[in-house]
């Protein structure tokens, strides 16, 4: 069994050092012989065992004695450890590809491919700084009435629901990706605006009024708010200008936004958003998946169209 361990270790070392390549080839020969039920006649295992023992004995005689005695069981142990770690490594790569995190969808924890955990970062509701995700995932659209929210391609079988805030850095990162995916795939796209700061309530009301007034122009307004400088979006002059550019009359929108009925309707909508159980933005519902934090584009595409999304 030692041949197998050696082959694995030496193969990896061979990538970096030519010195180990001939040993790796010898180990491979040994492995092939073992697999075909022939004895390993190169003396490879003996040679390696002696070298290892020779090294260990200089550190600890007792260790060398134990190693010599339990060499075969220890080899087995290393094989099992290797298989275990190989399984978790492959699983990690797969999960990273599919969910954007080595640990699974919306799972925090260290991931070598995303060491800073960017794909899980969110702006917590009421805050603007990133928070660590809770382990459990109670977020769902179950019992949430989405009828009053802005929707694009409403008739499509595929569904994307995006909860985001113009003031949230991570929403701003995820929004164009998800929006483009919706456009490309023809999936219905529902936008649930949720302000991460108190002052952003105004934009909720403006958005509500704008959508009511003209659903077609509404999406260019949203696009503009997401692409604008973060420092500008609370600025009244900027809002007026953006509304104008989108084809709205700022006065009419302002009048509507100050209407108590609008305030009541927006509060009702925000209450519906809260019902999802979400805890930060962006939160994206695609088919049956909930994706929290800005994921790589492929993750959204996989959630919508499956692993072979690129073939469609």
């Amino acid at each position: 069994m030692f041949c197998v361990v050696s082959f694995i270790v030496l193969s990896i070392l061979s990538v970096f050092s030519a010195e180990n390549r001939s040993l790796a080839r010898e180990a491979l020969d040994c492995v092939l012989r073992r697999v075909t039920l022939r004895p390993c006649n190169t003396g490879f295992d003996e040679k390696m065992k002696a070298k290892i023992l020779g090294f260990v004995i200089t550190k600890t005689e007792t260790g060398a004695r134990i190693l010599n005695r339990f060499f075969e069981p220890l080899s087995w142990m290393f094989i099992l450890l290797f298989l275990g770690s190989a399984f978790f490594a492959v699983r990690g790569v797969y999960l990273f590809y599919v969910t954007g995190s080595c640990n699974g969808l919306n799972q925090s924890g260290f991931c070598v491919f995303d060491p800073t955990g960017q794909s899980n970062q969110i702006s917590n509701v009421g805050e603007s700084c990133p928070v660590v995700l809770p382990g459990e995932d109670p977020v769902s659209l179950k019992g949430v009435n989405l009828s009053g929210f802005p929707v694009l391609n409403g008739d499509s079988q595929k569904r994307i629901v995006f909860i985001g805030s113009y003031g949230c850095e991570y929403s701003r990162k995820a929004y164009p990706v998800v929006r483009q995916l919706a456009e490309k795939s023809g999936a219905s796209f529902t936008f649930l605006y949720y302000p991460v700061k108190e002052s952003s309530d105004l934009l909720a009301k403006i958005g509500y009024c704008a959508y009511r007034q003209d659903a077609q122009k509404y999406w260019s307004l949203v696009d503009s708010f997401f692409t604008a400088e973060r420092s500008q979006i609370e600025d009244e002059a900027f809002i007026r200008q953006t509304l104008t550019e989108a084809g709205y009359n700022p006065e009419t929108i302002a009048f509507c936004a100050n209407d108590p009925q609008t305030e009541w309707a927006v509060k009702k909508q925000l209450a519906e958003v809260v019902k999802t159980g979400f805890f930060g933005t962006p939160t994206v519902f695609i088919q049956n998946e909930v994706l929290i934090g800005p994921k790589p584009p492929r993750v959204y595409a996989i959630a919508l169209d499956g692993l072979l999304y690129w073939a469609r």
Binding site: E46, K47, A50, L53
Partner: peptide, 14 residues
């Protein structure tokens, strides 16, 4: 005791 093992260990350790 395998003679090759002794020789290899002598080389490796000393």
């Amino acid at each position: 005791v395998d003679h090759h093992r002794i020789a290899l260990m002598l080389d490796q350790m000393a």
